[in-house]
Design a protein around this nucleic acid. Structure first.
Lengths: 133, 133
DNA sequence: TTAAATACGACTATATTAGTCCAGTTTATA
DNA sequence: TATAAACTGGACTAATATAGTCGTATTTAA
């Protein structure tokens, strides 16, 4: 299947929302309430965005999140990477697997799949979160 | 995650192999052996390709499969459709779900996701199985 | 009549995704 | 300085999707 995960969806929704709020600090709870997203799950997504320096956080009362990157600096590809690790359209393109594929010799779609991977990555790389308007 | 399923992989491998064999009839067992693909699973994939008139089959001794479409007439998009049903990058784009999304009013990424869906479909629609060479 | 093939539904196993629980830490402010 | 509001983070469970298996039926060349 070719589908974005909920986590990526939640990240997009959150980034849009935080960006719209300008410099106002936004809490996980606000987003969770407004968009009916499970709080704990959302919190984890935001934490990842923070680790990648897309968001900045303040703890404690009046704490919350603020954007420190422009939405047009964040590609969909990097967002997916951040949230669910490097994308690979088939198992065998994951680095760890590349050597223990046991049909590798006979496999007749290796190089085309590589090309496809490249094109897909390219699409996602040039698709910025800001395009999502 | 954005990944092709094994079934789609197996379909690609099979189509390539059958196409390479020219007019020779190929059995599921041959493909299963050569590429180490579980026989029963492969059989089901081939049956789907048959139902979609991509392959033609003969039962009984000396039976097997033959291509009845050119590889350049089969888009990746249609192949995925055949094998795992209509693709949607997020749940809410599945027709059955479209009316029971309960953040639909507040959702701030509806239209961008639609555009993304369109672009991805477009990429897959113009990517033919024959491109996989 | 038999063996080699496809056809197909029901089932089980495994992996991934989604969501929950709980115990922290930080910090403004009453 | 106590408290409540917020983030942090690990371990867990639940739900779903994918992968694979089993059994039985049907077809057909030799």
């Amino acid at each position: 299947m070719v589908r974005f995960t909920k986590k990526v969806e939640y990240a997009l929704i959150s980034l849009r929302h935080i960006a719209n709020a300008k410099d106002e600090i936004i809490t996980a709870k606000q987003i969770s309430n407004k968009f009916n997203i499970p709080y704990e799950l959302l919190a984890k997504v935001l934490q990842k965005l923070k680790k990648e320096k897309i968001l900045e956080s303040n703890q404690g009362v009046n704490g919350g999140y603020k954007l420190i990157k422009q939405l047009n600096e964040i590609s969909l590809s990097s967002l997916i990477d951040v949230i669910e690790g490097k994308l690979a359209i088939v198992e065998c393109l994951h680095e760890k697997d590349i050597n223990d594929c046991f049909i590798s010799d006979t496999c007749n779609i290796k190089s085309p799949i590589n090309k496809m991977q490249y094109e897909l990555e390219n699409l996602l790389k040039h698709k910025m979160v800001s395009d999502f308007v």
